[in-house]
Amino acid sequence: MNAYTIFMAASAPATEHGEHAAEHGKAVFPPLDVSTFSSQLFWLFIVFGLLLLLLAKVFLPRLGGILEDRSNRIADDLDGAARMQREAESAELAYEQSLKDARAKAHNVAETTRASINAEIDAEMEASERDVAKQMEAAEAKIRKLRTAALANVDDIATDTAKSLVEKLFAGKITLAVAAKAVKAQN
């Protein structure tokens, strides 16, 4: 830095400079004025170098980061949407499955209930039939007994009747045994 001889120029008004340049510079077209090249190159190098550094290290990564964030966010959202769609589809499938299951179960329950009711009805019918048959048998047995008893009584009644008939008709007396013998003979 010591080698640099730096000194401030009196910043004279631009018009003065313009006149100055016009006096001396008429011969030289300013863009081709070689005497200005070194300062232009120097400052271009410094300024463009700094700009490049700032852009490469600060601003472009920031800007790129924003764009990347956005594209990531969009990709994430699309992924999320696809995932939710899949979830909704599987939920619908599960719902349909459970509906089918419930329907099948209800059908089963109805079926088994019907079957068990039928079985119960059958069993009761059978039981009552057996009961009825038993009662009928009992009744028949009773009737048979009564009939035999009645038949047995018929003989006695006939004997009595025969005895009293004989006694009435013939004013005689016969023993019951005779009458019974006669009744039996009649049978």
Partner: peptide
Amino acid sequence: IAQFEIHKLVDLSIGKYDISFTNSSLMM
């Protein structure tokens, strides 16, 4: 053509090389 003229705003130099801060440098 005058618009292309370069005016020194701050006179600087390294050795014999002129590196003055000019209106061009300012616009950069």
